[in-house]
């Protein structure tokens, strides 16, 4: 469960972005809609502990993020979150499998190769396991990024514009898979986007 209370963030003294309070139950799916500059990414990064809290509080699974030190936050991210970005940000010098195994390695949990197979199968890219990132198509690469995000069975998946770079066909495919794996892994899914194509797929919308 995620609870946001009287949250505000200030990049410079003049302009402060305030966010309304909200509560998201585990397993729910939310769409964070808004124009660019409206604070979508800021909220997503605050929720994900990528940006240090200035005012207000965020509680994730009973832990108040503002009480964690930086290294505690690093570990918390590794265990509880999966991130997906507009670009896949895969490590180009490694293979698909090695990229996926980075997730448990960096989070400090056991590396389970059968879990890699399982997730790749869920996303229908099991045959790409040994390939290098450069050999993948854009859609395949984004699916690998999704696989990496769900590999550790995180309770929260945060996606920042995951479909903006994709054409309609891939957008459909990726968003379907995203919803599907989130459900399969019982994870809360929050997607920040201005992509109107996603609107009719997810009912819960937070408009910024």
């Amino acid at each position: 469960m995620i609870r946001v209370q009287s949250l505000a963030y200030r990049y410079n003294p003049e302009k402060e972005i305030t966010f309304r309070d909200l509560t998201i139950q585990t397993g729910e799916q939310f769409l964070l809609l808004g124009e660019s500059g409206s604070g979508k990414t800021t909220l997503l990064h605050l929720l994900g502990g990528l940006l240090k809290l200035q005012r207000g509080g965020i509680e994730v699974n009973g832990t108040e993020l503002s009480t964690l030190t930086e290294s505690q936050l690093d570990r918390f991210r590794g265990k509880h979150y999966g991130f997906i970005f507009q670009r896949n940000h895969l490590l180009a010098s490694l293979t698909v499998e090695q990229n996926l195994l980075m997730a448990p390695y960096l989070a400090g949990i056991k590396q389970d190769k059968s879990r890699v197979e399982e997730v790749l199968a869920q996303l229908d890219i099991a045959d790409q396991k040994k390939k290098r990132i450069q050999e993948l198509s854009l859609g395949q690469a984004q699916r690998v990024a999704i696989a990496r995000a769900v590999l550790n069975k995180p309770s929260v998946i945060l996606a920042d514009e995951p479909t903006s770079a994709l054409d309609d066909k891939n957008c459909d495919r990726v968003s379907e898979l995203l919803l599907q794996v989130a459900q399969q892994n019982r994870a809360t899914l929050i997607i920040a986007t201005h992509d109107q194509r996603l609107k009719n797929k997810i009912q819960n919308v937070i408009q910024l």
């Binding site: 994900g48 930086e70 690093d74 570990r75 590794g78 940000h89 490590l91 980075m102 960096l106 989070a107």
Partner: peptide
Amino acid sequence: QYDLAIMRSMGASRGK
């Protein structure tokens, strides 16, 4: 820089 940032998001500490 993206590699580094994504590794941090996956739980790597600055020290690592």
